[in-house]
């Protein structure tokens, strides 16, 4: 059975998407991504190092022919900045995909959803395939969808916090409301968090810090791969209802009297 995620005609071979930040070096980045089985990798847009021109390039390690590169607008606090970074990312020539971040506050890195909505509208009109990083707010998710987002990416918890899916009920409501795919972005701390996101019915999960910051990032990448697959399979299989009291698994028939 083909259970592949398709967004705007693009086929995705994995429901685990991974970031490339915070690794020790590019070699470790490449190995972890390989172990994760992901085919979407996020990247940031920054100034080229002019003083050390021999410094290695990320794309020498992450082949854009093999992976779908999803540039982000991380670090942008205004609509104007987010648009600038998104347009530069597109001109750098890899794709029209953009993981749109308009950040509202340095300490929490929570999104400024008002700016996010405006930027989503503008970039969608310019032909970008927009993946907005948003709050776990079902109404906002709907508004972003209406503004032309290709998918919505609600946070599970603050970026890099590892707190897991803090409001699974809101994520569930977002899933009920949304017609576009829902991808949990941010907050995953360990494998079970990724499984929970997928068991809720999310279409994919995006992880960076939980892998890159683990003691053994390559082993954690593999754990996340299995966790994502397990969660998706469990969701598709349909879990049993929760009950307060026991129901025996073994029959009473045939017991000794």
């Amino acid at each position: 059975m083909d259970d592949r995620l398709v967004i705007r005609g693009i086929e995705f071979n994995s429901r685990l998407w991974v970031g490339t930040g915070k690794y020790k070096d590019f070699e470790q980045t490449a190995k972890a991504i390989e172990a994760s089985g992901a085919d979407v990798v996020t990247v940031a847009v920054r100034r080229v190092n002019i003083t050390d021109r021999n410094s290695p390039n990320l794309l020498d390690y992450i082949d854009p022919k093999r992976y779908k590169i999803l540039p982000n607008t991380a670090g942008c606090y205004t609509v104007e900045d987010a648009l600038r970074y998104a347009r530069l990312a597109r001109e750098a020539g890899v794709s029209d995909l953009i993981k749109l971040e308009v950040i509202g506050d340095e300490k929490t890195l929570f999104p400024d959803v008002i700016g996010l909505l405006r930027a989503t509208e503008i970039l969608a009109k310019e032909g970008f395939i927009v993946f907005p990083y948003t709050n776990d707010d079902p109404i906002m998710a709907k508004r972003l969808e209406d503004a032309g987002a290709a998918a919505v990416m609600p946070l599970g918890a603050p970026i890099g916090s590892g707190l897991g899916i803090r409001n699974p009920y809101n994520i569930k409501i977002i899933l009920e409301f949304a017609k576009v795919p829902v991808i949990v972005d941010a907050g995953v701390g360990t494998a079970s968090d990724a499984t929970i996101a997928m068991e809720l019915g999310c279409d994919a999960v995006l992880i960076n810090t939980a892998i890159a910051g683990a003691k053994d990032p390559i082993a954690m990448a593999e754990a996340m791969k299995h966790a994502t697959i397990a969660g998706r399979l469990a969701y598709k299989a349909g879990r049993i209802a929760k009950k307060l009291y026991a129901t025996a698994s073994s029959p009473y028939d045939g017991m000794l009297t």
């Binding site: 940031a44 847009v45 920054r46 100034r47 390039n57 990312a89 001109e91 890899v94 970026i159």
Partner: peptide
């Protein structure tokens, strides 16, 4: 624009930014 890179001229005092992709989440 990429197609204009070769033909776009530079003038004294121009502010130029060159960016690429780096690791990010």
């Amino acid at each position: 624009k990429r197609v204009d890179v070769e033909t776009t001229t530079i003038s004294e005092g121009d502010v130029i930014e060159i960016v690429n992709f780096v690791g990010g989440g």
